[in-house]
Design a protein around this nucleic acid. Structure first.
Lengths: 217, 217
DNA sequence: ACCTGAACACCGTTCAAGT
DNA sequence: ACCTGAACACCGTTCAAGT
């Protein structure tokens, strides 16, 4: 009879204690599947095979769950730093790596970009790398914060438009012949095109402001 | 006793029948004040001095209310078209006019940019004007949809970062001396800087692709 | 320390009933 | 045609009580 204290194998998903990290992992799985707006403390508890109220012993509220998940995903970001490559190529690589992460959890990232003003922080690897590259490119110290913010805003902006489908709509409605190689191909091109255009714009700015070349080391 | 059918003046706000347009106007007022996430069918009904269920006779559901409000605000967009000004100046004016509208209803616009992939449609005045300007600038027909989407994505992207506060955070955390003339000044500069950079980038692209000047007519 | 059931104050929406 | 009350199926969160 004491075996009855636990339901038979297969009905009980959780035989591991509730943890903050475990809650975030489960929440991310639900978000990836159904979107942020479908995430519910009650559903999350069900997914963890727990009582809804038990979650509140590990997490203060729902907003903290969303911030925790975003933070967990954010720390997964890694990029190789090609110190001796030209800054144009380094920006392209950084942005592409960031986009790869965004594609891994599109629903969460679309939400974070628009709802979490503090999702990308100046101390984050992405921001630090971006600042370092632009510094190496020869952007004057006085303009570095603004230029970094500009490039950051453009990258997250075009990514948001891609993740929420606006980019795809604009392309497919404007020219019905688009998308022959699939929407992913179009959006690869659009991302690349946007990067190239902003890079060209920066080159122009650097050329008028100085010698247009950063200190090589 | 028959006077009691209506509460005394001042307690009853609505003595005009419920309308679809009236619902949108009231919803916009609530959104401007408290944000989209605070809008509730029940609060909306209270603001209109109506029973919550009465709304459903004029509007199918809450999502339709949000789309209706966004559409109502979107049609307010107007810009002057300076046919004979250089395309750079025309883009700057168009983008600035659009930003002015966004500042009039920041909460709604931030929501629409990230949640309504169809908020800006290719038939809208904004999109049509943008396409016309880029066409006049000499962008080849084959690239016109992509370049328009690129400029549109960049403008809405930087606007989103401004409206949700991310831009301000990036600037103020990166350089503590920022904001001496107030955040609005900073964000004016950032918007202008982004526009100028993207325009310089387009100039570079046009220069390599052709004679770098559109047909004047 | 960790979990839980009941409860509270909300939601959006359906539906049958009123005028 | 337009409005309404009651009800349903949900929410996030508090709190007192259990182990």
């Amino acid at each position: 009879m004491e075996k009855a204290k636990r339901p038979p194998r297969g009905t009980r998903k959780r035989d591991v204690p509730l943890t903050e990290a475990g809650i975030y992992v489960a929440a991310l799985r639900l978000i990836d599947a159904d979107g942020v707006e479908a995430l519910t403390m009650r559903k999350l508890a069900t997914a963890l095979d727990a009582n809804p109220m038990s979650l509140y012993h590990h997490v203060p509220n729902k907003d903290a769950v969303l911030r925790g998940v975003a933070r967990m995903v954010g720390t997964q970001f890694r990029t190789v730093t090609l110190e001796d490559a030209p800054w144009q190529e380094r920006i392209r690589l950084l942005a592409t790596d960031f986009r790869t992460l965004a594609h891994r959890h599109p629903k969460l990232m679309a939400y974070s970009f628009s709802h979490q003003a503090d999702f990308i922080q100046p101390e984050d690897p992405f921001w630090a790398a971006l600042t370092a590259i632009l510094d190496a490119a020869g952007v004057p110290q006085s303009e570095l914060p603004q230029i970094t913010a500009l490039v950051g805003a453009v990258i997250t902006g075009v990514l948001t438009a891609e993740l929420n489908g606006a980019l795809h709509r604009w392309l497919s409605l404007a020219s019905p012949t688009v998308g022959e190689d699939g929407p992913i191909h179009d959006e690869n091109c659009m991302f690349r095109l946007t990067l190239d255009t902003i890079i060209t714009g920066l080159e122009g700015r650097l050329a008028t402001n100085g010698d247009g070349r950063g200190a090589d080391h």
